[in-house]
Write a protein that binds this DNA or RNA. Structure first.
Lengths: 212, 212
DNA sequence: GAAGATACGGAGGCACCCTCCGTTTAACAA
DNA sequence: TTGTTAAACGGAGGGTGCCTCCGTATCTTC
């Protein structure tokens, strides 16, 4: 951002303007049509040629990334705040619940991230890392306090969270996910007394027949 | 059956044959290219015109359904078998674990189902119902035995399961999902609060390091 | 074998993807 | 201001895939 070592030209005003317009249009179009929406529609909505769109955002994922970066950062900051809560387990639970609300309002996001995950794109790299850190900070604190098992990675948890939210088109998904998260956090919590039996369950492989 | 004076004609031999060919080709193409693969490629692979493909399977989801119906039924049957296991909680855990293995071998399936869920298609209706029943049978037994909380619906669980598996393209997804499922099942389990035998084996916090 | 019913195939129209390049325009120097 | 030039613009165009439509081919039945 602030590289002044080279004397670089000032970026062209129209480029900056158009980039912004495309982002604005993309936010609208993706919200309405999901992450598979037509990029040409985005360009048209921005009052810009398709070529311009592609110059600024060479891939669909690049565009997603730009659109959702801010959103991801908000979630990330929330984690920062929650770090100061008294009960670390509860803090985690809250963060997850906020995540659900977030998904509920920004429907496009999860689909976009899911798509990004599959293609291993930049958006994935960025958001995943960011959110992973957010979760990690909560998770670590809870684990350090001895309130939570320590063998679950932030990545695991993030995956599970996204996964649950991925079904967000079905009726009642939201309360369903909230229930699931409760179960999950309960599972994470270290049992005061009982827990600790070795978990060596093998999949019941006998039964699923191999198909040629 | 015969609501008409006419008895129904025998189905044409070529139609039956072609339908089968398309299914065969689809299985191959979807496995390789995921659920977004070109239907024209499927038709070509089947040695059949695109029109024929569309006549037999008017939508992409119809084709998925036909391809994966058998697979879903296998999973369903496994649940049936597991109903006879001693420990009902463990049975559930095993079924889920088998589900993971299943996904691992039939990668196309989860993506197809996820896609189906979003479009509310027939495939969704069928498989979801089928698998829901499978889970329900396991869940009910465990709940009836008082071993598991009763406020989680089979639908919830199925959603969570699919969701977790949806990230199945990332490296290490499989072990991650297995860990998640363990946590989850633990969360489902009713706490044996009264039975707090002083087996205070605290989880060695540092012992299990995170896999990434 | 003839008559119908049924299925076949692929051309065609449409939408979208993405690239390429001639034209326009903003930044900077004189 | 004006000229120079790098940067950005836009949209035509070639490619692919989706799905429909309908003339033709083939199968079943009598």
């Amino acid at each position: 951002m602030d590289d002044h070592t080279d004397q670089t030209r000032k970026p062209r005003a129209d480029a900056v303007r158009n980039r912004e317009r495309v982002l604005e249009a993309a936010k609208v179009v993706f919200s309405a049509g999901g992450p598979e929406a037509s990029l040409e529609a985005v360009a048209k909505g921005a009052g810009v040629g398709i070529g311009t769109l592609y110059r600024h955002f060479p891939t669909r994922e690049d565009l997603f990334e730009a659109v959702y970066r801010r959103e991801v950062e908000q979630l990330s900051e929330l984690a920062e705040q929650l770090k100061n809560a008294k009960d670390p387990v509860d803090a985690l639970r809250r963060w997850l619940r906020s995540g659900v609300e977030f998904v509920a309002t920004k429907k496009g996001m999860v689909a976009a991230l899911a798509l990004a995950v599959q293609s291993g794109s930049e958006l994935h790299a960025f958001s995943f890392e960011r959110l992973t850190k957010a979760i990690a900070s909560l998770l670590d604190r809870a684990a350090a306090a001895g309130a939570m098992r320590a063998d679950i990675s932030p990545e695991d948890l993030l995956r599970a969270f996204f996964g649950m939210c991925y079904m967000h088109d079905q009726p009642g998904w939201q309360s369903s996910v909230l229930r699931m998260l409760d179960v999950f956090v309960d599972g994470l919590r270290v049992r005061p007394a009982a827990k600790a039996k070795a978990r060596t369950v093998k999949p019941a492989k006998a039964a699923v027949k191999r198909t040629r």
